[in-house]
Design a protein around this nucleic acid. Sequence first.
DNA 1: TGCCCTTGCGCG
DNA 2: AAAGCGCGCAAGGGCA
Length: 636
Amino acid sequence: MRTFTPTLGGEQVEIAAPEPGRFDATAFRAAFPPSALYGLDVEGFYMDDLGQFSPDFGLRLIQFGTAAYAWVLTLDDPVQRAAAIELLSDLEVSFCSHTSMDVLSVATQLGVDITARNVDTRMLAAMAAPDDKRGGKDLKTLVTAHIGAELEAAEKVLADRFTALWLASEPSRKKPARSVIDAYGWANIPLDDPDYLTYAGLDAVACRRLANVLVPLTEAPPALLEVETWLAGEANRIQLRGMRVDQAALDALSDEARRETSEAEAIVVEISGGIPARSPKIQDWLGEHGVDWDTWEDRGGALTDTGKPSLAKNNVKLLLDYPLDEQGRAVAEQLIRFKSHQDALNKTSGLLTLVAPDGRLHPSLNTLGAVTGRMSSSGPNFQNFSKKDPRMRGLFLPEPGHVLLTADFDQVELRVVAALARETKMIDVILAGGDLHQLTVDELAESGIEITRDTAKMTNFLIVYGGGGRALHEQADIPLEDAQNIVATFRERYPAINDLSRAMGQFRDSIRTISHRRIPVTTNKQGDLRTYANINYLVQSSARDLLVDAWHRFAHEFGRGPMVWFPVHDELVLQVPEALVDQVTDEVQRCMRFDFMGVPISASAVALIDEDGTSRWMTSKRAEAIAAARSTPKDS
DNA sequence: TGCCCTTGCGCG
DNA sequence: AAAGCGCGCAAGGGCA
């Protein structure tokens, strides 16, 4: 048996790395008795876009650790592999690992589902430092900060070994990018390399120690940690299961988007003398061919965040209103064409590389992706598929025999802010089943200001986001003075909201939500505190907690956890066996119904059935329209 | 060429 | 007094 004795945080660590054929399974199992939590880490090949779902991915080592020692098992050895699977499968044993990487690897490569028995240290790090997007959640950085620098040093040694390996293998070739060297290194470093084995063992020990260090730093009540741990497991299960993709529809949509955008792009480049359709330079060029950008806003053109004219597909058509010359007109027409297919191009080209060999998409779900605790998604981001083109969401299908069903909260953020602020005018309207946007119309009318319901709706959301007159002016195409007047009057008419906004704005370090989640106050690029955003953090975070509460009840009170297909901020999309649709519709609505500080929160669930009678992903609005059309057939 | 930053845009 | 929130992704563009 090879053993290594590096230190971590100044304390000696014992790493056991048995050679193939000389593995003592009894000693291994005795080192990891049941009813305990062990650090888990794996080393595999470098990953491509498909990650653990790639046919090229595989594991080489698996490591288990306590705070003091680790075993590094070689998965090439059938005996060690079997011992690893046996330990992983023991329902009395729990693990802690950093990110979903190890849990997903164990599931796809060893066939063991530990999603419900894993504590994610990255989740703990996110609870402890919600705004630390970069190093603060990375394992090496965390270990260096809280335990010791030895792991980072070991990784550096390994990186140098990879470089040396590459140079030895191809001395004539020029040194490539770091990622290429790493890919080569992870795949080719000998399984008996001491640096590799030491690094691998240290990782598992570090992760185990990190769990203990991070829990108190979260300053979170045990119940909250328990829910977050459960949720992270559910997120891993969702990613493992993935969603069915309509491959023929994807190919067709991709072909169309590619054809349209490349033809449009070619014409734009040709006429403009080499400017790509998406280059900012195209605006200058258009300015020389008849567009007067000074009048863009007056004509109703939207601006980007940086105050420049936006050529997004919603307003690119405005170009045609200018006295363009022949070239300018041709370019404008092709830009409109390009923009109308740009989103489909981006999304479908990404999807083509992300559909796994099982014909499924496996997007990740980061349960604490945002500072507010909101969940985020990547690979692809499943939470920002267009709802304008129904073919986009329609690419995703339920399992055979199942129906997709979506349950959306009704105006949850406005209700939450009304409750938190104790804004009685709003609460009364909610209790009476009225319309909060119309309430704002009526309130402002009493102060002598006439606005449309659309403007009222924008104002309502604006206030919840911490915005002011200028933002309303820019978004609603209202003169600045009028917009400022609307906002000021809004604050007068809703004094409790104004008070809450000001009270939250007093916090300069961090705010605390009612579920005791700590959210740091953020700064802008100039380093100024954005205390005006605090109210939104409180509201957005509370709404997120309500969704997770509902999900938790759905899973625990009704045993429907496996039916959750994907969460989208204020909605749960479910995948339900056909026979249970009516029953689950009722159940999920019950789980999403709350009395939040005396304010009713409710949700509406609808089955997603397309015009052809099959179930596919779509917005609830579209599903309702199709259902209505079905129940009142057209006269013929 | 690879890397990093900014811009723009999809969703809630 | 004034202050639009949270994400992920693709492409452009500057730089080494």
